[in-house]
Structures are given as C-alpha cells and as structure tokens.
C-alpha cells in the first residue's frame, strides 16, 4: 500500500502534465478496398464553424452518390492544416481562413487551387437580455464591461483587432480565448457582458445570446476556401463534394447558417 499510493498519484500526475496529444486517426486505412460492393468513404476536414452546414451537406452528398459515405472531422483550421501536413488521410479541406489554406497549398498537398465558398464577419454577442446595455462597438471599451474575445493568434482575434483599429476603439478584454466557441460559451454562461464572435456563431446559439451588428465589421471579412486534396483516394468524389459546397445547394445551406456568399 505504501508504494502503491504514490505510484498511482505519480501516474495521474503525468497524465495531467502532458495534456492532450494530437495525431492522425489510425482507423482509416481500410477504406481502400474498392471491391464488388463499390462502397467507399470520403473524408472531409472542415473548420469547426462549418459543423452544422457541412453535416447537412454531407447527407445531401450521400443521397446523391449512393455507395459513398462522408466522414467529417471538425476542428480549428490550424489543427486541421497541421494534421494534413502530418499525413492525415483527408480528401477535402475546408478552412476558415486563407492563411491555413496557404499552409496546405504551399506544401503541395492540394489538388488544384482553392475556391472561396463563404465569408463570415464579426458581431457582438451579449447574454440574452443584454443586462450591461451594450448598444455598439464603442460600448465595448466602457469601464466595467467584461469583454471576451479571441487571442490575436487565431483568425477571430486578428479580425477583432482589425475592426477595433478601424473603429478607433482600444479594447481591454478580460480574457483572450483560443477559439470563438470559447468566447461564445462565456457569453452564454453570463460570465462575460459581451463577446466578439462571428455572425454564424450568434445564429447557432439560437436565443441564448442577443446580437448587435457592427458596421465596422466589413473591415475584416473572413474568407472560407475549400480544395480537394492531392492525396484523395477518389479524386472525382472529392471534386464532386467541392462542387456541391460551391454550387447553389451548398450556398443555400451556408446562407441559412449566416455565412456570406463565396466568390466562386
């Protein structure tokens, strides 16, 4: 007993210290069996903000292409770009910004050039009821307003900094989060008086947050590019999925989620 207790605590300690480890999923190697059944898997890596739209579009794609099932992997664009760089078995990549797309195209991992299929702009999210009475971007700098936004290292934070510069407002957030979903979470829970998120995040939160639009947001429009990947097992299927997203059906689904139209 004397030896067991510290040993167990040391083990648990190690688990706590090392935190999370990334890496490519190992279970995808079996998809190469294109036997008599003709069934195959298309793997799409997409930015986290595309979750609801792409889940719907994947169902549409499966209905249009019997025998093909779509596997979706949602994460931050930079994580996805890193995973693709490390050899993760993806067929299509949809990024929330051009910078992370450039990482993939720059490494020669894309098949053709990316197409911008959607845009997103910032909005102010406040807890339902807007207790702090935030009415515009200037209010975010008011004393006593607890503002949460993204860190400048991630796209939503860079966009927020651009908009703040355009509006001539110095922001002093109480927290700079890694992901826009973390910002939204802190607004929904009422810990923050206001948060800078994307228009699509406000939509996805339903009635849990109120939103105030920002006229200056046009200074930082985020473009979402998509591209079939060079390592795709079925290049035709990958191209067909990109066509669906950039086509009228895809654009309709994305507009419903609050995205701006892509340039195509």
């Amino acid at each position: 007993m004397a030896a067991v207790l510290p040993a167990v605590s040391a083990l648990l300690l190690a688990a706590g210290l090392t935190g999370c480890a990334g890496g490519a999923p190992a279970g995808m190697a079996g998809a190469s069996t294109e036997g008599a059944s003709g069934s195959q898997t298309l793997t799409v890596f997409a930015a986290a903000s595309l979750k609801s739209s792409f889940t719907e579009l994947a169902k549409t794609f499966e209905a249009q292409h019997p025998g093909t099932s779509v596997t979706l992997s949602f994460a931050g664009s930079s994580d996805l770009a890193t995973q693709i760089g490390q050899g993760a078995p993806a067929d299509v990549f949809a990024s929330a910004d051009t910078k992370n797309m450039d990482k993939v195209t720059g490494a020669g991992l894309a098949d053709g050039s990316p197409r911008v299929f959607a845009t997103n702009t910032l909005a102010i999210a406040v807890p339902a009821g807007n207790a702090a009475n935030v009415t515009g971007f200037q209010d975010l700098a008011r004393d006593g307003i607890r503002l949460v936004m993204c860190a400048k290292q991630v796209p939503c934070g860079a966009a927020a900094a651009t908009v703040a510069g355009k509006a001539g407002v110095t922001l002093r957030p109480v927290s700079e989060e890694n992901a826009v979903t973390d910002v939204l979470g802190k607004v929904i829970s009422g810990e923050a008086d206001a948060g800078l998120v994307y228009v699509t995040d406000v939509k996805s939160a339903g009635g849990k947050v109120d939103s105030i639009s920002i006229p200056e947001a046009d200074a930082a429009v985020n473009s979402y590019p998509i591209v079939p990947l060079a390592g795709a097992k079925d290049k035709e299927a990958a191209k067909a999925f990109v066509d669906l997203v950039t086509g009228p059906e895809g654009q309709q689904v994305l507009a419903k989620a609050g995205f701006g139209a892509g340039s195509r």
Binding site: L17, A151, S175, N178
Partner: peptide, 29 residues
C-alpha cells in the same frame, strides 16, 4: 500542469490568467 479547468473557468489573459500550459496551447496556433 493545470490546463482544462483554468481554460474553462479562468479564461486566458497575459499576466493575469494565462499560465504556461495555456501559453503553449495558444502559441501552437
């Protein structure tokens, strides 16, 4: 080594709540 509870509960701001594990997580971007 604390990371998850801090990120969820305390937020992340340089010099106030951004501890080393949170800094690593952010720099990784």
């Amino acid at each position: 080594g604390e990371f998850g509870a801090t990120l969820t509960f305390a937020g992340s701001l340089q010099g106030v709540t951004r501890t080393l594990p949170l800094e690593i997580y952010l720099q990784r971007e």
